[in-house]
Design a protein around this nucleic acid. Sequence first.
DNA 1: GTCCAGTGTT
DNA 2: AACACGGGAC
Length: 238
Amino acid sequence: MEEELLEWYDANGRDLPWRHTRDPYSILVSEVMLQQTQVERVIPRYHAWLERWPTVAALASTPAGDAIREWLGLGYNRRALNLHRAATKIARDGWPDDLTELPGVGTYTAAAIRRFALGEHVLPVDVNVSRVVRRTGAAFTPASAHALMDLGATICLARIPRCRTCPLADSCPSRGARDQPARKQSPFEGSFRQRRVAVLRLVTESTRELGALDHEAVRSLERDGLVVVEAGTVTLPA
DNA sequence: GTCCAGTGTT
DNA sequence: AACACGGGAC
């Protein structure tokens, strides 16, 4: 099964910018950006980020607010602050043996850094990989990490798998099976998080008075560490 | 409107 | 185990 997968990947795998480096910091940036975010949206932001802050030291020596501003539009803004905090920690203490000690780095991202930057023989399991493994019932080695991700992202889709073009279809016991929709997200329009991100933009782009802002949303941003409120003004963390 | 899918918090 | 967290493609 794995041989067919790797053959398919040779011909059909995606050529992505972060697959041309083994620099741990670059891989960290790419993986954090890719959390919950589509590849096509990440590519231009990945280049911009690394051009502005090419190294851990460069990011660590910049104000956190600049990192948040650079991140705006990518979504899940807490990731920007976590990435800045991770850079600060690495600049001070070096890379930890257990990468999940870095804020914003969980099981998946730690495994991805170990595999793609450090070359260790571990298989990062995101839901795409998990789905392919579950459906095929096959065992794959860490050498198939990129291939499994690409197959899961382009062929072995959750709702409507493209089994007719899948290199593993012949021996896949789940051929044709679809996963349940089962998701829930309340409407964004008119929601609290709409107000919340509006406040974040206001904070990052202006120096307006706190009184003009939405106090409840500011408190929520504080819980994420994204803003600091002092003496009637709202500023980004230094 | 639905779908997407890792981390941190509770 | 459940929930919150963005924004954009469709």
